[in-house]
């Protein structure tokens, strides 16, 4: 079955042209797939345009904090701290929020989770907390100018996740969306390192 027969020719991948069936594949097939993709995108855009933020009831916007106050909070903490920088307008923050919420609940006894909302509106921040962090043991603060992450050694991008040992020593800084492996590994470093 395997030996003695001619090998199938390997042509350049046509995936970008959506012609995924090269032997008996046809242009007709590609047109159907293209139409399907375009229709899906149109529906997704219409649905996204029609969606709106739910009214926020019973959720306070995060309290403002200065750079000095944040540095004192970190320095005075006797627990390790995971400091996540987010904003309601930041799509990657939205995508990592469920993971942070789960991790905060799981490591509640070992690690203190702090959220820092930057360059945001109070209503947008409250809506974001209501959507993702309502029951999560995370304390949130607001930094309207967005200068605190830079003062702590990060940059002006969001999201950022700082990992601090007790006393405020920086253990690790993750720039961008954080994944489960990195988050759990760095928390383990804080707890057992």
């Amino acid at each position: 079955m395997w030996g003695g027969q001619p090998a199938a020719p390997h042509s350049f991948p046509h995936i970008l042209l959506l012609t995924v069936c090269p032997v008996d594949g046809t242009a007709e097939y590609a047109v159907v797939v293209s139409k399907l993709v375009i229709t899906t995108l149109v529906f997704a855009l219409i649905a996204a345009a029609c969606s709106s933020a739910a009214p926020v009831e019973g959720v306070d916007p995060p309290a403002p904090i200065t750079s000095e106050e944040m540095q004192n909070l970190l320095a005075d903490s006797t627990e390790p701290i995971v400091l996540n920088v987010w904003a309601s307008w930041c799509t990657p923050c939205r995508s990592e929020a469920p993971l942070l919420s789960k991790a905060a609940a799981q490591f509640e006894d070992d690690v203190r989770f702090v959220g820092l909302d930057v360059r945001d509106t109070p209503n947008g921040a409250a809506a974001f907390i209501a959507e993702f962090y309502l029951d999560a043991p995370i304390e949130h603060y607001a930094d309207q100018p967005g200068s605190i992450p830079t003062d702590l050694g990060g940059n002006r991008g969001v999201p950022l996740t700082f990992f601090y040992r007790p006393g405020g020593e920086l253990s690790y800084l993750h720039i961008g969306v954080i994944d489960e492996r990195t988050l759990v590994l760095q928390i383990d470093e804080l707890v057992n390192g």
Partner: peptide
Amino acid sequence: EARHGNAARCTGNLWEIGVV
């Protein structure tokens, strides 16, 4: 594997099927 007779009876390009 293509040089050792792989995919002799396959209808389709294995690379493209795999990537898709």
